[in-house]
């Protein structure tokens, strides 16, 4: 943290960058909100710790339109999103200075609350201990038990696009889970079971659009769901079919582009496991076209928009 502040101060002072996109503490000590700092405001409130879970890459669309250069603190998993934005010309790379920051997995406040703790006043991280102060007394939790779900299946800890990066040897010290295990569980269901699973999950949707708004890939100038001419735009649900279609359409739109950052599921106020739709697509494409992870390389050809003579024909393969 101290290293990051020093580096950012140096780059701001020597004029390399004009602004800094990072996180600041929110109302509670464990709330972290994306924030922009500049010379005038100073770096007061800038924070980088285990609660800084938000993916900052999408904020760069608007930030890189402004004059001057913006420094961004880039966690490994967020950098995949940035690569996709670069690939799709949604950000101006020239106006961005990427400072890669290490990540030893993020802590989920929701998971802390899910242990049954209420009346939380403060949460502090000390080494591998998470110390929770509540109105009823103090509790210490093991950090490993309250890590974000998406961190449990983390792709890797490498920042894939950066101008400079700050290294750290610290790790969460956990066994990573199999990223596709949840998808395989769904695949093992009968079609009816799976249909019912998704109907029951998706019917919880309140169309708040949080998943779409947080997604670094869902960055259309005008989303089809906001466009009256498409015939599919609406906020209110006409029938229960509608929110199903919303999520299915969204999954198709990000197919081959989704970086599996897990933000959609994290922000969902209804706790719908939306990432599973996208992850199923990733698994499917890996099987058909060879392993590919969107965002690893901004220059890479992605399987759904690149054609090669060796391409598998899904209908042929699955019939065999």
């Amino acid at each position: 943290m101290q290293g990051i502040i020093e580096k950012v101060t140096e780059l701001l002072d020597n004029g390399t960058v004009d602004r800094v996109l990072a996180w600041k503490a929110g109302e509670f000590s464990y709330d972290r909100t994306p924030a922009v700092f500049d010379k005038e405001s100073g770096l007061y409130g800038l924070v980088y710790d285990s609660f800084c879970v938000n993916n900052l890459s999408k904020y760069l669309i608007e930030e890189s339109k402004k004059d001057g250069k913006v420094l961004v603190l880039m966690k490994p998993c967020d950098s995949y999103g940035l690569n996709m934005l670069i690939k799709e010309h949604r950000v101006d790379r020239e106006k961005i200075y990427v400072l890669g920051v290490p990540c030893k997995c993020k802590v989920s406040v929701d998971k802390i609350k899910a242990t049954g703790l209420t009346g939380i006043l403060d949460i502090v991280e000390e080494g591998n201990d998470i110390k929770v102060t509540t109105v009823y007394g103090d509790t210490t939790l093991d950090r490993k038990d309250v890590l974000c779900d998406k961190c449990m299946v983390c792709k890797d800890k490498v920042v894939v696009v950066y101008d400079e990066k700050i290294e750290s040897d610290e790790t969460a010290g956990i066994e990573k889970l199999d990223r596709m295990a949840e998808v395989e569980a769904l695949e093992a269901m009968t079609p009816d079971e799976r249909f019912n699973f998704w109907r029951s999950q998706l019917s919880k949707c309140i169309r708040c659009n949080a998943c779409r708004n947080v997604c670094p890939i869902c960055s259309c100038t005008k989303c089809v769901f906001d466009n009256d001419n498409t015939g599919i735009s609406s906020k209110a649900n006409v029938d229960s079919f509608e929110e199903n279609m919303f999520h299915i359409v969204r999954a198709y739109h990000v197919a081959g582009r989704c970086t599996d950052c897990g933000e959609c599921s994290r922000v969902c106020p209804q706790n719908i496991p939306l990432h599973l739709l996208n992850r199923k697509f990733i698994k499917e494409m890996n099987e058909l076209y060879g392993t590919y992870q969107a965002g690893t390389d901004a220059e890479a050809k992605d399987p759904l928009t690149a054609f090669t003579k060796e391409d598998a024909e899904p209908s042929v393969i699955y019939n065999r």
Partner: peptide
Amino acid sequence: EMLCNGCSQCARVCP
């Protein structure tokens, strides 16, 4: 052009 994101996906698939 009012809706175009400039993402280049169409150019990539255009045969």
